[in-house]
Design a protein around this nucleic acid. Structure first.
Lengths: 145, 145
DNA sequence: TTACATGTAATCATTATAATTACAAGTTTA
DNA sequence: TAAACTTGTAATTATAATGATTACATGTAA
């Protein structure tokens, strides 16, 4: 099982908005780069907007970043697109048998471990900014950023 | 979205096998503690057996740990139950448009970041052993282990 | 007012999971 | 040997999340 591709698509469109900052990034434009349907982009854009990462307005073509790219981390994007809830990267089986010591305590015992593992993963994402991504793509494209 | 509860169930049954090491841990016994169907346990047990974590034999009732509990990490269990493939915690959108610099390079740019995040998470799991879990449950149950 | 954009809901196909049932095959014991 | 019990495994089903698609209301500007 994998975390939804919404996350990678979110990073893609934010990067492309930055790359295309002199142009107009409509949902059609972004969708053709991601290779998906414009409605999918608009839904995702709604999430990014709600998280304060992009500016976009009904009827007005094009989206812009709402912050400098150096101030947007991949963790921001990850949280914005809601692929994983807080403390719920790992699913837990419900209703273990409370008549058994293991069943009674397994959830409380495991929960902090799962939480620590999730936080370690998220910390890595928090240390990478959109600027890092955009610059790396620029370098790979031989375009000066 | 959450990682399958197979992982937490796997930890549960290994802990219970250890707790019940003087008794016979049949799939029915384990299932009643987890509160699921015995066939689910047997399927999971097959994965744990394949990974060398448990010993179980057709026709012979009961499962035993194949290693000392201090030598089984949660990472071993996680890998055994196959909830996340190597390097695939994060799904990536397929077929971005190669005519666009972002579409052409986004996957290569993002992949090492995703990989690093996943490894950080897995490292935490690798630092916790089944012994830690069992002892914590024991402590919560006021049972000397 | 016409053209085009965003916002959003509804529908559908696909996929993973977990529960359930059923039964073959191995082991023990009466 | 036969009966009882276990594991191993396949098939089926219900449920849930995802992503693609269509449709249309709403907003903006030429």
């Amino acid at each position: 099982m994998s975390i939804s591709s919404r996350f990678s698509v979110g990073i893609h469109i934010l990067s492309l908005i930055e790359f295309n900052k002199e142009g107009i990034s409509t949902s059609d434009f972004l969708a053709s780069s991601v290779n998906t349907n414009p409605a999918v982009i608009r839904k995702l854009m709604g999430m990014l907007k709600k998280a304060g990462l992009v500016e976009v307005h009904p009827g007005i073509a094009g989206a812009k970043l709402a912050k400098k790219m150096s101030e947007i981390t991949l963790l921001d994007v990850y949280k914005a697109v809601n692929v994983v809830q807080d403390n719920e990267l790992f699913g837990m089986h419900e209703n273990p048998n409370a008549d058994c010591p293991v069943g009674r305590h397994i959830q409380n015992t495991i929960e902090p471990i799962f939480s620590a593992a999730q936080l370690a993963m998220e910390k890595v994402l928090g240390n990478v900014t959109l600027e890092d991504v955009v610059k790396d793509i620029g370098k790979k494209s031989n375009i000066v950023c």
